[in-house]
């Protein structure tokens, strides 16, 4: 019996919010599986099972109620983000260990849902790419491997990997630029590239964009983070490609490559670890875009979204504190 007002509640819950986020990822996953094979579905299942198991185990150890926390679906969202940012042909233990790290270290050791300062999925990514750089860099090309070959790679032991995987488009572009002295235009004519970015992957990112628009329409997220992130990334790419067209790809390539779309709509928008004030969100996302762009072009990793997210997570308390909106009656113009 509720003792105090308000006695009315909007029919909403954390589970509903998380379910909407999962639903919004579905188109991207479908396109992913269509172009790159069933491996991603296996990885999603592995990550989901691992996340729920670790979550339940840790809730039990912490003496917290297990059922409501599993039903809130937050662990599933983390699991899916890990699966989508990891190579779909990585060995099974890679994603299980990563998910365990995300749920146990990045989430529960900090106090569980709502308390983690860093995005758990990105913590897992950062840890694994530092620990297993080779495994984390083996991505299949579009239509390159059939389902049985992918299953063999995930569950089998032997990995004669260089023969069967392609470098990611961002990697291919960077190595190409550095090693062969070739220009952007000639590299993008290569077989690995499609209309605007990597063949196949450009459609996956487009589907993530679609899912993101759905989240905006359902008011699960606000426009600030996606617009600031994609806008800043596009601006930087455009400026760079105008100044040095042979050394830097343009805005479209940058937006539809790597984890830009996933990051803009699904990763940076994680409310727990992200900025919360309207102005803060703009600063947070613009900063993440800048770091992403720098890592992509001057760093050693396939993509920069994960590190950009974590670095900006660090700044969130400061950003939020310094961007508190004016309270009713205290606005400057009165």
């Amino acid at each position: 019996m509720s003792l105090n007002s308000p006695y009315l509640r909007k029919p909403t819950s954390v589970s509903r919010v998380m379910a909407e986020v999962l639903l919004a990822m579905a188109p991207g996953i479908a396109v992913y599986a269509w172009f790159f094979g069933a491996g991603i579905l296996v990885q999603l299942a592995l990550a989901t099972a691992a996340a729920l198991a670790f979550e339940a185990a840790f809730l039990h150890m912490r003496g917290r109620p297990i059922k409501p926390a599993l039903a809130d679906l937050s662990a599933v969202v983390t699991a899916w983000l890990i699966a989508l940012s990891f190579p779909s042909i990585g060995p099974w233990w890679l994603i299980v260990v990563a998910t365990g790290f995300a749920i146990i270290v990045a989430k529960h050791l900090y106090g569980g849902l709502g308390q983690n300062p860093f995005n758990p999925a990105m913590v897992a990514y950062a840890v694994m790419i530092v620990a297993f750089p080779a495994l984390m860099s083996q991505w299949p090309g579009a239509g390159q491997l059939d389902a049985s070959a992918q299953l063999e790679l995930i569950f089998g032991g032997a990995r004669d990997i260089d023969a069967i995987t392609a470098a990611t488009p961002l990697d291919a572009l960077r190595t190409g630029l550095r090693a062969e002295g070739a220009g952007v235009a000639s590299l993008l004519d290569g077989a690995a590239f499609g209309h605007i970015a990597a063949r196949g992957w450009e459609w996956v990112t487009a589907a993530f964009l679609l899912g993101g628009v759905y989240l905006l329409a359902r008011r699960i997220i606000t426009w600030h983070i996606p617009v600031a992130f994609l806008g800043t990334l596009a601006l930087l790419a455009t400026l760079a490609s105008l100044l040095a067209p042979q050394a830097y790809p343009g805005a479209l390539f940058s937006l539809f490559s790597g984890a830009a779309m996933l990051g803009a709509f699904f990763i940076l928008t994680d409310p727990v670890s992200g900025a919360t004030t309207p102005r803060g969100k703009l600063i947070y996302a613009a900063g993440a875009a800048l770091i992403t762009w720098i890592i992509r072009h001057f760093g050693a990793f396939p993509d920069g979204v994960a590190f950009a997210t974590l670095l900006m997570n660090l700044c969130v308390p400061l950003i939020d504190m310094k961007t508190q909106p004016a309270v009713f009656g205290h606005k400057k113009k009165g």
Binding site: S13, V14, V17, L113, G114, Q115, T222, P271, V272
Partner: peptide, 11 residues
């Protein structure tokens, strides 16, 4: 349940 800082309240 735990606050997830979603910001619905602020809006």
């Amino acid at each position: 349940m735990a606050c997830i800082r979603c910001g619905e309240c602020a809006r």
